[in-house]
Amino acid sequence: MSGSFTVETDHGVSVTDVTDLVTERVPDNVEDGICTVHVPHTTAGVTINEAESGLLADVETILSTLVSDDQAYRHDEIDDNATAHLRSMLLGSSVSVPITDGHLDLGTWQSILFFDGDGPRRRTVTVAIVGDS
């Protein structure tokens, strides 16, 4: 079983909580299994962490610090978006979450966070579910 949804971003670097959008794609008949969330974009990523607003701003700050806009990147000669590619590599393009008793088995403060490093854009997020009913 699989599905997808879109995320609209409104500025260059952003982090969006997509937990509810992923949860909506877990079929009612799946009791136990695995949910994989994949971002098919080279300038976006996905991770699991707390969706507290200060932390989300901190994520944007640390990614901008680790991959500075002040560097001369070779890829910028082609697209002028090397920082977005490099930042997304730090997060990765997919996460997997167990499904237990019909629900995503996330910790109390865990959320599925979508990162866009090259916005504003319309992005696709793919959700694939394998499970037992």
Rank of each mutant, 00 (worst) to 15 (best):
E77A: 14
P40H: 01
T23V: 05
V95M: 12
A44G: 12
S94W: 09
D69L: 03
L86Y: 15
V125I: 13
G119W: 14
D28T: 08
D101M: 00
I34S: 06
D80L: 01
I112H: 15
R74E: 15
S64V: 00
E8H: 04
E60M: 05
S93I: 01
S14W: 07
S14K: 05
H75C: 00
H11W: 08
N81K: 04
S14R: 08
V59C: 10
F115S: 05
H85N: 12
G33F: 05
V39M: 05
E50M: 07
D70H: 15
L91A: 12
T23W: 07
F115P: 00
P40M: 01
V125M: 06
L113F: 09
I48T: 14
L113D: 09
S111W: 10
V95G: 10
Q110R: 11
L113N: 07
S2Q: 11
N29A: 02
L90K: 13
G45H: 07
L63E: 12
L63I: 07
T65G: 01
L63H: 12
N81V: 03
S2Y: 11
S68L: 01
A72Q: 15
S133W: 08
H103R: 13
G33H: 02
D17S: 00
D20L: 02
V127R: 09
D118K: 08
H38P: 00
L104T: 09
G107T: 08
A82C: 02
V59R: 01
E50L: 02
C35E: 07
D17C: 02
